Amino acid sequence: MENAELVSSVVVDLERLRARKPLVHCLTNQVVKGFTANALLALGAAPAMVEHPEEAAQFAGMADALLVNVGTLDSMQMVAIDAAIPAARAAGRPWVLDPVAVGPLEVRTRFARGLLAAAPTMVRGNASEVLSLAGEAGAGRGVESGDEARAAARAAERLITRGVGAVLVSGREDLVLGPSGRALVANGHAMMTLVTGVGCAMGAIAAAFCAVSADPFRAAVATAVVLGIAGERAAETARGPGAFQIALLDALYSIDGAAVAERVRLA
């Protein structure tokens, strides 16, 4: 896709998201649930955190998209995830894998790699997580990445050859790869790294965009652009991380096609 076409697709998908209000089933980590829910609501989607293993499978087929985030993985959540993914796929629903802290920790690394067999619609992670998910050695420390987004390009390409619909590698610049294209999104602000849950909210927003776009690559670009621009706008008024968190929700609420067209930076 050419950049102008991509920008147009972001605007269209943002309008679709606001019109359809997709219901996103979030099997996510305990630290970020509230912020994730508020970010989805601010953008125009609807969150749900249905976690009981028996209910998770039932609900996954009812929701418009599924997010699987392994940030605070435990045994019960693993059972719920293993039940929800096949149900979502059987219902034709997209699902996003967020491999939080994969690499340094063995249980989640083994579990997340196993989930690749279910062909995630999108993988969203930092460079170290994407490298580790693909079987390489990343320089991550917990949820922190020690690698730049571009360093994970080949690993992302390998994930796509294994059936992943698109890969969104977040960082100072966000790298997006998919069968239909490749893009580098330069929007964002350093203060986004000072608030717990911004990256995890990105995974949820990605699931929401996957619900309204048939092209995972397009959905990934929309996610990076919209959240990045919202981060920039929030940083213009926030004096610190506390104010920034609230300002980011406000910016997600107010972002529109005009802001996207004016501020998007694609390479």
Rank of each mutant, 00 (worst) to 15 (best):
M191W: 00
T193S: 15
T193Q: 06
L194K: 14
L194S: 14
L194I: 00
V195R: 02
V195E: 02
V195P: 00
T196A: 12
T196Y: 12
G197N: 03
V198F: 13
V198A: 02
G199Q: 06
G199L: 08
C200A: 11
C200E: 07
A201D: 08
A201S: 15
M202D: 02
G203I: 07
A204I: 14
A204K: 11
I205Q: 01
A206G: 14
A207S: 14
C210F: 00
C210M: 06
V212D: 02
V212R: 00
V212E: 03
V212G: 00
A214D: 15
A214V: 13
A214M: 08
P216F: 09
P216R: 04
F217H: 04
F217N: 03
F217R: 00
F217E: 01
R218P: 01
R218G: 02
R218F: 10
A219G: 06
A219L: 07
A219F: 14
A219S: 12
V221F: 08
A222E: 01
A222D: 04
A222C: 15
A222K: 01
T223K: 03
T223E: 03
T223W: 12
T223G: 04
A224L: 10
V225G: 00
V225P: 00
V225N: 04
V226S: 05
V226P: 04
L227S: 12
L227M: 15
G228R: 01
G228S: 07
I229F: 02
A230E: 02
A230V: 11
G231V: 13
G231E: 00
G231L: 12
E232D: 14
E232A: 14
E232N: 13
A234E: 05
A234H: 06
A235D: 06
A235G: 08
E236D: 05
T237F: 10
T237D: 08
T237I: 15
T237Y: 11
T237W: 12
A238I: 07
A238K: 08
R239E: 12
R239H: 09
R239P: 00
R239Y: 05
P241Y: 07
G242V: 11
A243I: 08
A243W: 04
A243E: 15
A243G: 15
F244S: 01
F244D: 02
F244Q: 02
Q245D: 05
Q245V: 01
Q245C: 10
I246D: 03
A247N: 10
A247H: 12
L248T: 00
L248S: 11
L248E: 06
L248M: 15
D250G: 11
D250R: 05
D250L: 08
A251C: 09
A251Y: 07
L252D: 01
Y253C: 06
Y253N: 10
S254Y: 13
I255G: 06
I255E: 09
I255H: 11
D256A: 07
D256T: 05
G257N: 08
G257P: 10
G257A: 09
G257V: 07
A258H: 13
A259F: 02
A259T: 04
A259P: 00
V260R: 06
A261L: 13
A261F: 09
E262R: 15
E262N: 06
R263P: 05
R263E: 13
